[in-house]
Nucleic acid binder design. Structure first.
Length: 896
RNA sequence: GCCCGCGUGGUGGAAUGGUAGACACAGGAGACUUAAAAUCUCUAGGCCUUAGUGCCGUGCCGGUUCGAAUCCGGCCGCGGGCACCA
């Protein structure tokens, strides 16, 4: 009998699928279509075990849907524009294009041996001119629909390198290369008008039944609809044209607690004051230092500057409030100006205390806490209860004295509207999407700047506007900007000499419509109508939770924009019917701190040896327990230690030499920590099916999974066992003994469990059931026909996860055709019925015994049996039960 | 700082509000073998001068319930996101 040999089995079946065109998708109106998509990878150079997990999950769904009679579309491509390619070019010469395409080649080569049921004929990379040319066409259509516009926005500016920095290139407020303090600088940039759709994008979340609730919550908070009051303070001693300052507040009920007005450093009034007040200008310049991220702004020390201007309180013109410029106020949200109510906002309170401003408590807890409550005026923290909580107003002006924040806000808005102070408005936190990037390796924005005509879209027949190849990355900045000829062109409108836009698009644009392009990847328009109508929507989308907000929100916006521009059917407004977010694959980090040179080499006057951190590769160490915690030693240091005791001795010696390796468990895989597990070595050692089986087993798919060598080995052992069991059955080595009705039942139970498991993304639980079923099959003394049926069913149930092994077993057992095409087994409902059930008996919620009863026994009879049970009799001690709860088929609880 | 998650044996984890620890890994004991590997069988949350029909136990504290890993409130820890990483 032959051994399980993945190295020979796997290429054989991959070839068979390719020859049969098993996974090539073509439109077929007779079958229900199913579009399964995993978030496409960035071509970093090598596939990562996290990719293997992500694509295996998608593949399980794809193969399962194929077996259940669907016409499946399961494509793959690459999200290929972006900074790493430029960084590589800067670091080691070369060209981003060469680097990217060579990485793509490598990754495709690494993915193919994994046997994913992908339609490779549809593959593309977003850096293919064929793709980004269509993206440019889309952009032009969006421009003419009014979905794109230009405005000023701030960027991270490195004043030394004279270049724009990405947020990740700003480290502790300084440029990553120059180390210079980063400033916020305004540039004219392109924007998508996503904010026009804020309400629609928010409301439509309700219809996404098959999306995780957490993703919908995150998106809803991100869009951030708020109902508030917009009103104006009239100013005293302000420059011309600034006789009023518009503010927006979500808490108009706290107006009587106002103690100052805050302006954003980017507010028009701030800019006006800057002109002739050097002291103020210097303070504002200080506030503009640091990065642009919300996190940086929030964490920055709260700075203010008193403008000297005063405003009149809308309810009492004699009451004047100071106007401060404050660095924590965002120009993009509301009106860029707020009123501060220190008593009910911790940030305002910190600010008020710093600048010695008034604190006026507006409301206090409604009841109970009189004795313990310290008002903010008396040094307590800001009082910020939930809006649903009822509070008592000391300085209310509308509504009841005791009311919820919500009711008070509504009453305040009504009051203000009636008295002409302001009006209730709905605002969104969501800002327009800035898509301009001052970088080379991205999709060129297809517009031309003409002295006569202004900003003009490129003609579609001139697309794609291709990136020039002759560029260099030896100096910072955008190579397109300094290219001698690429910018020169004729105005598409008047024909006069003009200049191209040198900004390229945010890579989120590339990934916001690739799912639509996959339906017709070679079409000469962005999409093909018939294909888009047939294949959209994506039935199941799978990807990382890190994309919960931006990528998914942008894609939802793009789908709507593509409907408006005629590139998608109206039914595709929500492009992803179901979403699944999977966890990361983590791995322990092996860390030691070693002297950078031997002590004996130390000479007087020389630098003494320093401890430095060394990260070891997983394959270079042996891990074991020492003193109750996991530690490791280098394989080269084992010195013939044959058992645990000797390994521990070596570890102790290493500790003395400061060479002992600490194990830091479950860390995100990272190249710099050397804890990246290369899937290719796993495949080389165990085969693709083992890798696939392992990444699905043990951990729930939405949670992170720790890669362990022992886990991979266990997976491999199990597949070997399945192969051996199946071969024995195929070879007729099974003794013809008695019938075993239990095995037939187990088989149908397994069909039921695994089918439900796959449908619900419970892959780890499904695999646990497959272990159980395998054990049942192995132990069963059933006759060969029943065993053969069970083994064939096992192969089918495993086939989405371990497709190569399953094909091999299917063939051994005389299955017809490819298992990939065999119809998914259906459980016989009659086989799933159990005759008896074991009911645990609880007394006061604690388990005290159990009884076996027929499944259909009436409640009354169960009660009689329970009351007769010795544990219950003893607990009752002759008395009557207070309560008797019988949950049919589940449990019995006696309350005494 | 703000938003969203997660936390169960030595380890990964299972459990429609209903027997906590399924299924595995590592460990222990045994069988087979000249031996090893492979394979198979059994064992396995913690506690105890009472070994039981016992007590404790799902990050911590409290609540709802006949019954809570699961629901609610507060706290601690870890992770994801925060609009130019993808």
């Amino acid at each position: 009998m032959s051994r399980y040999d993945p190295a020979s089995i796997e290429p054989k079946w991959q070839q068979a699928w390719e020859q049969a065109g098993t996974f090539v998708a073509t439109r077929d109106q007779d079958k229900p279509k199913y579009y399964v998509l995993e978030m496409f990878p960035y071509p970093s150079g090598r596939i990562h075990i996290g990719h293997v997990r992500n694509y295996t999950m998608g593949d399980v769904i794809a193969r399962y849907k194929l077996a259940t009679g669907h016409n499946v579309l399961h494509p793959m491509g690459f999200d290929a524009f972006g900074m790493p390619a430029e960084n590589a070019a800067m670091a080691s010469g070369g060209h981003p294009k060469d680097w990217t395409y060579s990485n793509i080649d490598t990754m495709v080569e690494q993915m193919k041996p994994l046997g994913f049921g992908l339609d490779w004929t549809r593959m593309f990379a977003t850096c293919d001119p064929e793709y980004y040319g269509q993206q440019q066409a889309l952009f032009i259509d969006m421009l003419s629909e009014g979905l794109v516009y230009r405005k000023n926005a701030v960027v991270n500016w490195d004043p030394v390198d004279m270049t724009v920095l990405a947020n990740e290139q700003v480290i502790d407020g300084c440029g990553w290369r120059s180390g210079a303090a980063v400033e916020r600088k305004e540039l004219t940039q392109w924007f998508f008008k996503i904010s026009d759709m804020s309400g629609e994008l928010l409301d439509a979340l309700d219809g996404l039944d098959e999306w995780p609730a957490k993703v919908k919550t995150m998106q809803a908070n991100w869009i951030g609809r708020s109902r508030g009051l917009q009103f104006a303070f009239s100013t005293v001693d302000a420059p011309e044209d600034f006789d009023r300052i518009d503010v927006y507040t979500t808490r108009p009920d706290t107006l009587m607690g106002a103690s100052f007005v805050g302006l954003s450093p980017d507010h028009p009034l701030t800019r006006a004051l800057e002109q002739d007040n050097p002291e103020l200008a210097a303070a504002v310049a200080e506030m503009r230092k640091g990065g642009t991220t919300e996190e940086a702004l929030e964490k920055a020390e709260k700075l203010g500057f008193d403008t000297g201007i005063r405003v009149r309180h809308p309810f009492d013109t004699a009451w004047e409030l100071p106007v401060y410029i404050a660095n924590f106020i965002l120009m993009d949200y509301g009106t860029g100006a707020i009123f501060g109510c220190p008593a009910h906002d911790q940030r305002d309170l910190d600010f008020a205390r710093k600048y010695d401003l008034e604190v006026r408590t507006v409301f206090v807890p409604a009841m109970g806490e009189e004795g313990t409550f310290i008002t903010p005026e008396d040094g307590g923290p800001a009082y910020v209860p939930a809006k649903q909580e009822t509070v008592r107003y000391l300085r209310g002006f509308a509504g009841q004295e005791a009311q919820t924040g919500e009711a008070a806000v509504d009453a305040a808005v009504d009051f203000c509207e009636e008295n002409g102070v302001g009006q209730g408005v709905t605002k969104y936190r969501l800002r327009d999407w800035g898509l301009s990037r001052q970088r080379y390796w991205g999709c060129p924005i297809p517009v031309v700047h003409c002295d006569q005509c202004g900003v003009v879209p490129e003609k579609k027949e001139n697309l794609p506007i291709e990136l020039p190849d002759d560029v260099s990355f030896d100096i910072p900045g955008n190579p397109l900007d300094r290219h001698p000829t690429w910018r020169d062109c004729d105005c598409p409108s008047c024909g006069a000499p003009a200049k191209r836009e040198t900004d390229t698009m945010d890579t989120f644009v590339d990934s916001s419509w690739y799912f639509a392009r996959f339906t017709a990847p070679r079409a000469v328009t962005p999409t093909d109508k018939a294909d888009a109508e047939y294949w959209m929507n994506v039935d199941q989308y799978i990807g990382g939770i890190e994309h919960a907000i931006l990528h998914l929100l942008y894609s939802r916006f793009f789908a709507r924009a593509m409907i408006k521009t005629g590139h998608l059917p109206a039914s595709a407004a929500e492009p992803f019917n179901a979403l699944f977010t999977q966890g990361m694959v983590t791995h322990a980090i092996y860390l030691s701190e070693e002297l950078d040179k031997p002590i004996e080499e130390t000479k007087p006057g020389r630098t003494p040896p320093m401890l430095r951190k060394i990260y070891h590769y997983p394959e270079d160490v042996i891990e074991f327990n020492y003193d109750g915690r996991p530690v490791a030693i280098r394989r080269v240091d084992v010195k013939g230690a044959a058992n645990l005791e000797e390994l521990r001795e070596v570890y102790e010696l290493d500790q003395a030499d400061a060479r002992a390796i600490e194990v830091i468990p479950s860390a995100k895989m990272s190249k710099s920590k050397n804890n990246v597990v290369d899937p290719m070595s796993i495949i080389a050692t165990y085969g693709a099916d083992t890798a696939r089986w392992f990444v699905l087993s043990d951990s729930p798919p939405e949670r992170d999974v720790e890669w362990t060598a022992s886990g991979a080995e266990a997976a491999s052992k199990h597949l070997t066992r399945v192969y051996r069991i199946a071969s024995e059955i195929a070879a007729g080595d099974v003794p013809e003994t008695r019938e075993d009705p239990a095995l037939l039942k187990e088989t149908h139970k397994a069909i039921q469990d695994i089918t439900l498991g796959v449908e619900a993304f419970g892959f780890n639980a499904a695999i646990a059931k497959l272990y159980g079923f395998t054990n049942a099959l192995s132990k069963s003394r059933a006759g060969s026909e029943t065993k053969r049926f069970a083994a064939k069913t096992l192969a089918q149930l495993m086939s989405p996860m371990t497709p190569h092994l399953s094909e091999e077993i299917w063939q051994l057992l005389g299955g017809e055709g490819l298992i990939a095409n065999a119809p998914w087994p259906v459980a016989d409902a009659a086989m799933l019925v159990e005759d008896t059930v074991t009911l645990p008996i609880q007394v006061n919620g604690k388990r005290r015994g159990e009884i076996d009863v027929p499944t259909d026994m009436p409640k009354e009879e169960v009660e009689k049996l329970v009351l007769a049970h010795e544990a219950v009799v003893r607990a009752l001690d002759g008395g009557q039960p207070k309560k008797l709860i019988v949950v049919p088929g589940r449990i019995v609880n006696v309350v005494v």
